[in-house]
Each structure stands twice: as C-alpha cells, then as structure tokens.
Amino acid sequence: MSLLSIQNISKQYTVTDPPALNGMSFDSERGKIVALIGVSGSGKTTLLRIIAGLETPDAGIVVLDDKTLNSSSVFVSPEQRSCGLVFQDYALFPNKTVYQNIVFGKGATDDSVRLKQLIEMAGIGGLEQRFPHEISGGQQQRVALVRALATRPKLLLLDEPLSHLDPDLKDSVRTELLNLFRETETTTLFVSHDIDDAMAIADRIVVMRDGKTEQVGQPSEIYKRPINSHVARLFGKTNFIPAGLIRGAHHVFEDEKGKGMIAPIRPHQWRIIEGATDDSNAFRGKVKSMINRGAHLEVALETEHLNLTLHLNAKTSIQVGSLLTVGCSLTE
C-alpha cells in the first residue's frame, strides 16, 4: 500500500534557470526504504525539501498517508506534516546537549520507554549530557536520526545521510542505519549521490535526471537493467557495445544519440581468452593503459571498433602495448 505519493511536482527557482523539478512522480510503500539518486543538480534535495514542506512546488501534488500535503489549493506547514528530516550536516542545535536536542521535537518525550530504546539502539547511550561539538561525526549523525525518529514521523527524510562520514565509518553506519530503520519500521526516503549507499540500504531506488523520474526499481534490477546509458553510468563504469557486435545480450536499450541498440557490459564481465577462440563475443585489442586498483586491475583496451574498460584479476600479468583477446560473460 502506497504511503507517499508524488504526482507531477514542478519547481523553478528563477525564470532564467532550468527547472529544478519538471513533473516528477513516484510512489513509496509503507515501511520501505527508498533512495533518490541522481547527479548534482538533478533536483533530489529540492524534492526532499518540498516533501518536508520547506519549499513550495510550482505545481503538483504530495500525498502522505492519504492526506494531501501540497496541491494547488493546499499547503500543510512543515510542523504539521509528520515528516522527520535529517539534514546533510545534521543541524544539531549547538547550544543544546544531545539529550536536549533529542527531546526538542514535539511529542518526543510522550513514550519515554521507546525514547530510551531508540537511544540504546542507536548506540548513543551515555552521550546525553554532551554538546554536539563534543561527539564524533558518526555520533552526531545518529543523534540527528534519533531526534527525528523520536517524534514518530510517518515518513523519515534523509539528505545525503552518509556524505559527511569517512569511508571507514560509512560501512558500519550503513549497517546501523539499516537495522534502525527495520526495527522501527520507519518509511524512509533518502537522497544520495553515492550508489553504494543506495544499493546497500534501499529497497527501491528512484533515479532522477533533470527534475524527472528516469527509472524506478529494485537496486539490483536497475543495476542489471538500466533503461539508458545515463542510468547505466550512474551505477558505475559501463562499456556500451553496439548490439550488433555482441550476441546473446540479456539487456539492450536504444542509444540516446540514435545510433541503434546498445548492450551495457560492466568492466568485471570481461575475461581474458588465452589462445585461439571461436567465441563470437571475443574482442582483440591493444592495452593502452593500466591502473592498479588494489583488488583489481583496470585496463583500457583499444580494439578495432571500440575502446573497452576491463576489470581483470590483480595478479594478471600484462604490459601496456601487449595484445589481448577478451570475451564477456553474459549471464545475469
């Protein structure tokens, strides 16, 4: 059952700028975690702020739990929306302690047992009397999250929740976030430009481009079956092979520049073919450059018609300039 419904939302800040949102639509089910992803300027944060009531759309409808929050005649103020928002830099009140921050929200202290549970679950027990500047970035993030969850919002909105954390911390916080969302059964919508975050946390991903919905689906589905080269690229390096050059591709899409059908092949799908082969999906070319990425070797291969990017085993022994035959695995 759909909890949040976004219908044809448009927003343009100034006449000279392109619209930030241009007829954006999607639905989100109750209890699910949805990631909004897209490159910067695609309108992700604007949409989040419109749902929170911090900005007004030029047109469109926002419905939350069967209640219209935005339409041509309705505007529900942010404080009456029951949408908790965690800001990118957390916006913890610097003059209040962790505990004062958490209980600041309306109704946060109504259920003291639940509040205590939330604090324990988030692993911030014992920090209550500290000030925000006295705790780490990861702890600040969890405080902001507990502060938002304590008000029992129908929808939790997170703006780039992990962007301020260093890579080491990110993995553990991702897992903690996921556990917290699952245990509190909170419907969550989060904005991210990091595909790894979205893949790890989200049940569904909404890909945005130029203020519109480009593709909606489960993470693995979008990763494997992007609807165009933009979505494919967003999910990592991709080789775009003309469909005529490859046989048996499980997924193809129309080239945006009108050059026919394209098969997206990820760099890790390639393998080296030793000796002669009759594989019709084999390509032979010269190694132009190599970068050691630690876990794998990133190789740029120049063939007669294509420039390919391959991720090969780090132990592969090849040189720049050597000739290589590669084939691709087309199994999903």
Binding site: A52, L85, F87, A91, G105, K106
Partner: peptide
C-alpha cells in the same frame, strides 16, 4: 536558517521556534 527549518520539521511552529531555538 537550517536550525529553524530543523525545528519546524520537529513539529515547532513560529512561536516556539522563536522562543525555544
């Protein structure tokens, strides 16, 4: 500005946002 927005999403109207935050 962001603290004010934050207070609003935590359910505070103009009056309590001004006095409390």
């Amino acid at each position: 500005s962001q603290y004010i927005e934050s207070a609003r999403t935590l359910g505070h109207g103009p009056h309590s946002t001004f006095w409390c935050m």
